[in-house]
Design a protein around this nucleic acid. Sequence first.
DNA 1: CGAATGCGCGAACATGGGTTCGCTCATTTT
DNA 2: AAAATGAGCGAACCCATGTTCGCGCATTCG
Lengths: 210, 210
Amino acid sequence: MVDQLRPRQQAIMRFIEDFLDENGYPPTVRDIQYGCNISSTSVVDYNLKGLVRGGFLRRSKEVSRGIEVVGRRERRVKIPVLAAIAAGQPLPVFPQDVATAIEEDSVDIDAGMAANTDKLYALRVKGDSMIDALIRDGDMVVLEAQESAEPGEMVAAWLVQEEEATLKRFFPEGERVRLQPENTTMTAIYVDARNVQIRGRVVGVLRRYE
Amino acid sequence: MVDQLRPRQQAIMRFIEDFLDENGYPPTVRDIQYGCNISSTSVVDYNLKGLVRGGFLRRSKEVSRGIEVVGRRERRVKIPVLAAIAAGQPLPVFPQDVATAIEEDSVDIDAGMAANTDKLYALRVKGDSMIDALIRDGDMVVLEAQESAEPGEMVAAWLVQEEEATLKRFFPEGERVRLQPENTTMTAIYVDARNVQIRGRVVGVLRRYE
DNA sequence: CGAATGCGCGAACATGGGTTCGCTCATTTT
DNA sequence: AAAATGAGCGAACCCATGTTCGCGCATTCG
């Protein structure tokens, strides 16, 4: 196993990452050569092969700049911001449906925030109904799209008749559902179970101060 | 002004982004040609020039795959997670000092969260001293490194004698400083002004549910 | 000790890939 | 109607760039 990278390979790795950050595309073998003061392209190729074998890079054969830094892109996920919740807009279950339409609005989050990254979307919270859960007006909640929920989970619920979305804790109680706000000054909403559609479960919160 | 992209240019933009996501490096003119069913490379070049003029792309002349999607990489910033606050570890003012040491621990955040992205770092919150500011134990706070603060700002403060970091609101009161928790069950801390070093101002909060 | 192996060097090779050129064919402008 | 402009086509040109080859020079192995 390669436990310790040799200094030349370390330098190459660093150079590639810096180059990527600066230019948005990977360097050529010769870029690396000059950037790391290496005398020959073959030496670069030789070391790149080592880095590939060590699992640090991926390379596409015969492709210019065909270098990919392993484990770089995977950590970041761009998720769409669908709408403001507790406002009156409809919330599609599958973000892809509208992702293109409002792709401008998006948030990047740590991929570790949830498992199923392509089912994530975000909503901006309107109102303080979840204030006791430390979620306040203006916060961004990250949700994982799902159509059912466990009792007590914090969910985005769509009230069919009212055509309203709301952020509450979910408690099924036989024929009806109790949607419990986390705000001592507010009371629970009781709705017919057929009138409620779960749209997602809260997996994270983002807040921004100025 | 280019207000509406023509379908061919839309297709090209989409293809480039997808290609980037899939391969980690930009496509060649010919990749685009085949991917978008265009008959000639010159047509691709022609349209790329249009996209550059419209500000959608940046291109490096005579550089293979020298295509950069504007506003793509800039949005994401990787910031180091330095330590847990309110625990006893020292907090360096300049994240770079230790960034390499614990680079594993890092969070990606939306660049819009603050202006000076290279001065950002994150701390995991220990304890509930800021509970009334809706920040609780286990949350991640994002800070912008700075050594002074306006009265009332939420800051990470370093108590020199006690060798302790703490997250509080900052109120200078002549010779001394009041560090005010946001928790009605806790009282303010008063310390000598020379015993306090501001290490950063809170600009964001991230929370994760399981 | 000689052979094998890891690492580096320089040069050449061959193709990948950006760029240009001349030519159509609509559509718009004068 | 003639000229200008926008959009596309195919072919060629030629530098950029990935790849290979033969050769040194250490260090390690049998």
